[in-house]
């Protein structure tokens, strides 16, 4: 089956490549010119000029991020260091009586020593054992803990990138999400984060890049705002530094 499926996919790819040529030729023809194969000059790339230099100082970034994230229904805490993060998480897990916790495998989170501090809870570390079904571990979790790779104050957004040791499920499947944001990762604009993906280039991008701007929500029933429809209904952003 594996081989025949692979062969089938290869067949499809050959068809697709042939079709791609006729598709592009067709487009060029309808546009009334020959195929464009060199990168065209793109004078309007990205945000307008006045926006590119726009920056808030750190304190304002913190203030605005907090304001916007809270307005979307999220919670924000300003903490001094990782030790404070530890006590915050331990306290919250205790209050919520969290039984299952899943966290990313990242050095900052390793340092917290949550395993020892929360002996009652089942705490699992993403992909610490590759034979485990990690999606199920994340789905059963009450709390998921992640490091934010970036955050943007203007939109009140947290950015998380996937990797072998950083699951997409950890910020998605648990009921509660806790994201730790070191202050140096807090930018003003979305564009400051996005442009880095252009700079990295295709080969260096992870499979999943996710911007998260509050708890999962829906207004699909009579415009009545509901929180936690599919993703986490409670989200904490911990600003650290």
């Amino acid at each position: 089956m594996a081989d025949t499926h692979k062969e089938w996919l290869e067949q499809l790819e050959a068809q697709s490549k042939a079709k791609q040529e006729s598709f592009m030729t067709g487009i060029a023809k309808k546009l009334g010119r020959s195929r464009v194969t060199e990168p065209p000059a793109h004078p309007f790339r990205g945000a307008p000029d006045f926006w590119r230099t726009f920056q808030w100082p750190l304190e304002e970034r913190i203030e605005r991020f907090t304001e916007h994230f809270q307005a979307a229904g999220g919670n924000v805490e300003r903490l001094n260091n990782l030790a404070d993060v530890k006590s915050f998480v331990v306290k919250l897990a205790g209050e919520m009586d969290a039984r299952y916790i899943v966290r990313q495998q990242e050095s900052e989170l390793d340092c917290l020593g949550l395993e020892e501090a929360l002996p009652e809870a089942h705490l699992s570390v993403w992909n610490s054992d590759p034979s485990e079904n990690w999606k199920v571990r994340a789905a059963e979790a009450d709390i998921g803990i992640v490091m934010a790779d970036y955050a943007a104050a203007y939109t009140g957004s947290i950015t998380v990138l996937s990797a072998a040791h950083k699951g997409r499920s950890v910020s998605l499947l648990p009921t509660v999400l806790i994201a730790v944001i070191p202050l140096e990762r807090l930018k003003t604009r979305l564009g400051e984060i996005l442009i880095q993906f252009d700079d990295r280039g295709r080969e260096e991008l992870p499979a999943g890049i996710h911007f998260i701007s509050g708890p999962s929500r829906s207004a699909d029933i009579e415009n009545d705002l509901t929180i936690g429809v599919h993703g986490p209904g409670i989200v904490y952003a911990l600003l650290v530094g």
């Binding site: 990690w134 699951g167 993906f197 499979a207 999943g208 993703g231």
Partner: peptide
Amino acid sequence: VYMSGITGPKREADQD
């Protein structure tokens, strides 16, 4: 609330 950029299927060592 979510804006996701997806670049290809999961990487070899990814678990989701």
